[in-house]
């Protein structure tokens, strides 16, 4: 029982440390929020008109064109935000673990995994803030969600669940090598996954081999669930799939991260 309380208080302490870092050095957060916002503007204003009218009815809206495309693309961009934030978490974990203070933590009688939990919780908060920012930009350029209060709560819940999972995975990825530059680039594919799913265009416009991948990779059910909650498109079994994927990724990422952290430090 007391080990659990210790784990909670130590994680809270580490979270406070993380929040101080973020407030003092907000560059990483600004990048993590800024990059997807720029992608949103690019997709909507550069490509949106063409894609919107090209895909017409299959976007689900009746309006067509750029206005319909905003509503279509926002869930994908939001998940891209989750991915860029997770990448910035990987950078800060990889950097942090090379610092002496983490070596000090390892010699202290604290809940061991709390160093990592602090990062994950901090990242959760940071990602939610970034998503709020990106959603704000989306609303300004014509995003029209139809979700009611329950829907919005669902959106927050689903996003928290996805972020939690992806962040644990990135924390593990950050520890795979000792090299900060390598470690911070390993989560890169996560940025691409929303694009090779139903994030930017419906999967049925893709060639068969790609469609097969797009339909079975985790980001597609994530996106479909979000899209359904936000704009009322059919969700089907995407929600169940999303929960399943999240549970698996969280568990795998957590166990992997914990094992990597408990390795004998080489430095």
């Amino acid at each position: 029982m007391s080990t659990v309380t210790h784990a909670v208080t130590d994680s809270a302490t580490m979270l406070r440390r993380q929040l101080r870092h973020m407030l003092r050095y907000p560059v990483l957060i600004l990048t993590a929020a800024g990059v997807p916002a720029i992608f949103l503007l690019l997709f909507v204003y550069v490509l949106g008109g063409a894609i919107g009218s090209g895909l017409g009815g299959s976007l689900g809206g009746s309006a067509g064109g750029r206005a319909a495309y905003v509503n279509y693309v926002v869930p994908g961009i939001v998940l891209m935000t989750v991915a860029t934030s997770a990448q910035s978490t990987a950078i800060s974990v990889a950097t942090d673990l090379t610092t002496g203070v983490v070596t000090r933590f390892r010699t202290m009688a604290i809940a061991r995994v709390s160093v990592l939990t602090g990062h994950v919780l901090g990242s959760l908060i940071q990602t939610m803030l970034s998503i709020s920012f990106v959603t704000g930009v989306a609303l300004l350029i014509g995003f029209e969600p139809t979700a009611d209060l329950g829907g919005w709560l669902g959106v927050v819940g689903v996003l928290a669940m996805i972020t939690f999972a992806v962040t644990w995975l990135c924390v593990a990825l950050a520890m795979v090598t000792d090299n900060v530059a390598t470690a911070s680039n390993l989560p890169m594919p996560l940025m691409i996954l929303p694009m090779v799913g139903s994030g930017l265009v419906p999967t049925d416009s893709m060639p068969a081999w790609l469609r097969w991948f797009a339909e079975y990779q985790p980001f597609t059910p994530f996106i479909e669930t979000l899209r359904g909650l936000l704009t009322g498109t059919p969700i089907g079994d995407s929600a169940i799939l999303a929960v399943g994927w999240c549970a698996a990724i969280t568990l795998g990422g957590y166990l992997w991260a914990r094992r990597l952290y408990n390795r004998e430090p080489t430095g």
Partner: peptide, 23 residues
């Protein structure tokens, strides 16, 4: 340790408070 084991992003007081919390 031989190499400094303080959190360089925190102030001196914050570093000590961090230790007080963790202890």
């Amino acid at each position: 340790g031989q190499f400094s084991a303080v959190d360089h992003l925190l102030t001196g007081a914050e570093n000590l408070l961090l230790m007080a919390d963790l202890n």
